[in-house]
Simulated scan of single mutants.
Amino acid sequence: MIFNEVIGNIKDIDNLDGYHVETIYLNSEDMLKRILRVSSDQNREYGITLENNEKLKDGDILYNKDKNIIVVKVNSEDVLIITPSTITEMGIIAHSLGNRHLQAQFENDKMIIQYDRLVEEELKKDNINYERKNIVLKKAFKHVEFAHRH
């Protein structure tokens, strides 16, 4: 079976009693892909070919018929959540991390980056407030590939 569209999100279903939920687990970077070949937790293989640049999100429903639902679940990622307390701290972070070309997301005055041991050591050294967590990202980190020389 090939899915061409997202037909809803599981968070919009008030009561899942009586439903059989089959889950497709994806990594964050898979959410950026338009064409995927996947396996579900029921060991069934499916294809996903979304149209119109549609991107998958955690909880998206790809199939819903006769109380059978196939839903996408995004795996959590190991990240550093950095919470600078001043604009000066943010400047220190930006300067320290800028040359590493790390992808970052910003949410509620927090900077979220993929876990990196060297970055964690730098944050500790500079006494910057952060925490390491496994979270489901709202959007995937986009990996930018380009040539870079110093």
Rank of each mutant, 00 (worst) to 15 (best):
N129R: 11
E120V: 04
I113G: 00
L56W: 12
F146Q: 09
R117A: 14
H20M: 07
A140S: 03
I69T: 10
F3K: 04
D116R: 10
L137H: 09
F3E: 05
I69S: 01
N53F: 07
V74N: 00
G59L: 05
H101V: 05
K124H: 06
T49V: 15
E89G: 03
L36D: 08
F146L: 15
I135W: 00
Y130V: 14
Y25H: 10
L56A: 11
L102T: 12
I70D: 01
D126T: 06
F141C: 12
G8A: 11
I135R: 00
I112A: 05
N64F: 01
Q114H: 03
V21D: 04
E45P: 07
I81R: 02
L56G: 01
I7M: 05
A94K: 05
N127L: 06
Q105M: 14
L56E: 03
I13L: 15
E120K: 14
I35D: 15
R132C: 07
I7T: 09
F3D: 01
K133W: 02
T86V: 09
I92D: 09
G18D: 02
E77A: 00
R117F: 15
E45C: 03
V74H: 04
V38G: 03
T88L: 04
Q105K: 15
V38R: 02
A140Q: 10
G47F: 09
I81D: 11
L118F: 15
K11T: 01
L32Q: 11
S28D: 04
E77H: 07
A147N: 11
K33D: 08
T23K: 07
M111C: 03
K73E: 06
N108E: 09
V74K: 11
V119L: 13
L97T: 06
R37A: 13
K11Y: 13
D30N: 10
V74M: 07
I135A: 01
K55W: 02
D126A: 10
H20V: 01
S28F: 11
Y46E: 14
Y130L: 15
E121M: 13
Y25Q: 05
N9T: 08
L50A: 06
Y19Q: 14
E51H: 08
N108P: 00
D14Y: 11
D58T: 05
Y115N: 13
K65P: 04
Q103Y: 02
G59V: 04
V21K: 00
E120W: 03
E5F: 05
N27I: 12
I82P: 03
Y25P: 02
Y46H: 12
N52H: 13
D116T: 03
L97N: 12
D109H: 06
F106Y: 14
Q105H: 04
V38H: 09
I87P: 01
K65S: 10
E29N: 06
E145G: 07
D12E: 13
R37G: 08
